[in-house]
Design a protein around this nucleic acid. Structure first.
Length: 268
DNA sequence: ATGGTTGGCCCCCAA
């Protein structure tokens, strides 16, 4: 018997401010699991009944004051994976991993919030850019040493790897999120056993965005987007890929995030 | 070349 599993990932940009929008995501996409980034909420102030209200009672979260923060809300039972590395030894709440109880074989889920990397694409002038490249290199090494199986990796990876993942490839080559060291680094990470689940469905000559800056008068008119939010699956799950959605309309939700949810359904 | 907006928090930092 085949069951389906729907996973959404969303950089919510403050879970306390936008928690009500999660019911719109539930109504629209009915995910079994929601992975959040930039929750900006220490664990003690994470909305305590949020998962219950959404029908996703199993909640794992890793937050801190002011910045970062990730969380997983699930209809299926989760087990926290305690052995995941402390990336760049910073304890900065950019990753949480869980095993998902599916009824048959469990699945492994990684939720990442990769450093944005600041403005200047030079690791000497801008340590945040160096941190971003180091984070990606560490993640690449980790999955090289631990090849993924039955694994789903999601998150705001803060890199648009392909030419048509940005509104203007040539113009963004020296803009952090699309520089060659970042896109090469992300491709090397993904090559450690993952498939880009959304590009599995959409040819690389088609534009795809998941983020539009707040700093545009009308994001839909200028449409200067980037695809920063990703869902990857290990190669053994590629035959299970069923459908995907990018909820572009969420960019117009009342007081929305600058990112929109990405949703994937697998037949498991 | 620059500026534009947002959230969190202690007035400026990160995005």
């Amino acid at each position: 018997m085949t069951a389906s599993l729907t996973i959404a990932t969303w950089n919510i940009n403050s879970v306390r401010l936008r928690q009500d929008l999660l019911s719109l995501l539930m109504a629209d996409a009915a995910p079994d699991i929601i992975c959040l980034q930039e929750t900006k909420a220490p664990d003690l102030v994470f909305p305590p009944d949020l998962g219950e209200r959404l029908g996703l009672p199993y909640v794992l979260k890793r937050g801190m004051k002011g910045y970062n923060g990730v969380a997983i809300l699930s209809r299926l039972r989760l087990t926290l994976i305690e052995t995941a590395p402390d990336w760049c030894s910073k304890s900065d709440c950019r990753h949480i991993a869980a095993s998902i109880e599916t009824g048959s074989n469990p699945l492994i889920l990684h939720d990442f919030y990769v450093p944005a990397g600041g403005d200047v694409p030079d690791r000497d002038a801008n340590p945040k850019y160096g941190h971003k490249l180091d984070f990606i290199a560490e993640a690449t090494k980790y999955f090289e040493a631990h090849p993924p199986h039955r694994t789903i990796l999601v998150g705001d990876l803060n890199i648009a790897p392909l030419e048509n993942d940005v509104w203007n490839h040539r113009q963004l080559l020296d803009v952090v999120s699309h520089t060659p060291p970042e896109t090469d680094g992300l491709n090397a990470w993904r090559a450690q056993g993952f498939v880009d689940a959304v590009r599995h469905f959409v040819p690389i000559d088609q534009k795809l965005y998941t983020w539009w800056s707040y700093r545009n008068r009308d994001w839909r008119v200028s449409n200067r987007g980037r695809r920063l939010d990703h869902i990857w699956v290990s190669r053994d799950l590629e035959p299970s890929l069923s459908t995907y959605r990018i909820l572009v309309e969420a960019r117009d939700w009342q007081r929305g995030s600058d990112h929109v949810p990405v949703v994937l359904t697998l037949k498991i």
